[in-house]
Simulated assay, not measured.
Amino acid sequence: MISIYQLKPKFQSLLRPYVNRLYNANITANQVTVSACLGSIFVSFIVGLLSSYQWIFCVIPIWMLIRMALNAIDGMLAREFNQKTHLGAYLNEIGDVISDSALLLVFTQLDNVSNYLVILVILLSFLTEYTGVLGVMIGASRRYDGPMGKSDRAFVFGIISLGIGIYQLPLDWIDPLLWIVNFLLIYTVLNRIRKGLQETQK
């Protein structure tokens, strides 16, 4: 199943010069992870506070791109510069869940958008990442299969936010889009379970 996660190697090659600079500046992977989480909370607070001005939603896709870069950078620092730690593994998974939840909760501030659908997206996003982590518990790898993994969600909600911010996406369209996202999240959960079980059989 196609996922934006498959583009990660090319994205990482673009970021490698910056990773080297951060390492030389004694910046650790865990510091980058925490910064990404705190940045997401800050952006969510600002956008939520000013949500009556639709243009503020243009901040979200910009931050989503920065956050994706930070997520790639912390992993590269950990793997390529021997900074892997057990604490880092916790921070990475927990930080992603907190960041996703904070950024998605902003959409509850919009008129004509169902809070229940937003909450469902958040809960299914939890389940998607939890299912990915469970792959390790059964002897498989950490599963990142799509079609609605972390990177895919960042892309989709970045596009939705951009559409809102430039007044090109009618707010009445958001609920149908959330239904589609929820369906794809359920499919992603099932797909990760299937892929994990297949991996253990091999």
Rank of each mutant, 00 (worst) to 15 (best):
R153V: 03
N30A: 12
S35Q: 07
W63F: 10
T85N: 09
D74H: 13
Y23C: 05
L14C: 11
N82E: 03
I166S: 04
F45Q: 06
I174L: 09
I119N: 09
Q83Y: 09
L178G: 01
G149Y: 05
A36N: 04
G149T: 04
L105Q: 07
R79F: 02
I62L: 13
E199T: 01
R16W: 12
G149W: 03
L22M: 14
A72S: 15
G158A: 13
S13Q: 09
I60G: 06
I166W: 02
Y53G: 09
W179F: 13
I159P: 09
L127R: 01
L7N: 00
M137V: 02
I46M: 04
L7S: 06
Y187H: 12
I46P: 00
I122R: 00
C37H: 00
L127G: 07
L22V: 10
I180E: 11
L177Q: 10
I193S: 03
V113W: 08
M148A: 15
L197H: 04
S114N: 10
A154M: 13
D145H: 10
T28K: 15
G158H: 10
Y5L: 08
S125I: 01
L190Q: 11
Y18C: 11
S125W: 00
Y144M: 13
S125K: 00
T200C: 13
C37W: 00
L91H: 09
D172Y: 10
F183L: 05
I160S: 15
G163K: 10
M148E: 05
R16M: 14
D172C: 08
T128I: 09
I193Q: 01
G75R: 06
L110G: 07
I41K: 03
L7A: 11
A25H: 09
V106N: 05
S141L: 08
F157V: 06
N26S: 10
A140H: 05
Y5W: 11
S114E: 14
G146K: 04
F107G: 10
L49R: 14
K10E: 11
N182R: 01
Q109Y: 12
C37P: 00
S52H: 12
